[in-house]
Write a protein that binds this DNA or RNA. Structure first.
Length: 232
DNA sequence: CGCTTTTGACCCGCGC
DNA sequence: GCGCGGGTCAAAAGCG
């Protein structure tokens, strides 16, 4: 099985533009070399890790010219990553710029314990929703049997404007006897709620990204009202 | 013992 | 203004 990846990482890799296909922004600066190769495909270009791995023993016959070319590419990719980091910082309200300089888009859970005081249970919804986030829900990525449906949603921003986001709906077939509503999609989710909705006798489970407390990616999982072996 | 899940209570948007 | 219903919180319970 591939190592479990989190939605936070996926969020760093791909997010949806206002009205077009997803833009891939996998920031590999400073990351160790043991990431799976598929990660590098995301950018469509060679990553720093690729370049570095090539320079670290995988091409023993490399000439000085080749090394210089790779260095130039490395510098170019680093510059691209810097620009992308700035872009993300702008989109996320400068959250990224305050994080560790090693290029990790999301703080590790162990270090992400915010010094901010714990929010009280009675805190207003404004304090939750006015933070800067991508507000993109991703469900059941790569589950294979699912049918994806993208829905554009206008997400209000704190400055009064709206940003068009994508909500992906995916259906997949699971064991009807399985009542856990846990869909193994390769990401780490933490269940934080379950409700019975009016239009469906099956309960709806709410999951949020378990990678970092600051990651606000969420997903909802509910059995189809028509076919209990299908979850949406 | 620490992390995750469960679940009842609460918050808030929306329609009437 | 009020009630409904979806979404979220957080204490308690469960689990490894």
């Amino acid at each position: 099985l591939p190592p479990a990846r989190t939605v936070a990482e996926a969020c760093m890799c791909c997010f949806w533009t206002m009205d077009t296909a997803p833009v891939c922004l996998d920031l590999m600066v400073g990351r160790p070399m043991d990431h799976e190769p598929s990660r590098a495909r995301c950018t469509g270009t060679r990553t720093e890790a690729d370049v570095a791995s090539s320079a670290c023993g995988r091409a023993p016959s490399m000439t000085n010219d080749e090394a210089k070319i790779l260095e130039a590419k490395l510098a170019q990719v680093s510059e691209e990553n810097r620009k992308l980091t700035e872009m993300i910082a702008y989109l996320y309200g400068n959250q990224v710029s305050r994080q560790s300089p090693d290029g990790e888009g999301q703080p590790r859970a162990s270090t992400a314990a915010s010094p901010t005081p714990p929010a009280s249970k009675k805190r207003s919804r404004d304090s939750m929703d006015t933070s800067h986030s991508c507000d993109v829900e991703i469900s059941n990525r790569n589950v294979g049997t699912g049918e994806a449906e993208h829905v554009d949603v206008d997400s209000p921003l704190s400055n009064g404007t709206c940003r068009r986001i994508k909500v992906k709906k995916v259906c997949t077939r699971i064991d009807p006897s399985d009542t856990s509503l846990v869909v193994k999609d390769g990401y780490q989710w933490r269940k934080y709620g379950q409700k019975v909705t009016r239009d469906n006798p099956s309960p709806r489970a709410y999951f949020r990204c378990a990678f970092a407390p600051s990651c606000r990616v969420k997903k909802k999982v509910q059995r189809s009202a028509e076919d209990s072996s299908v979850v949406e």
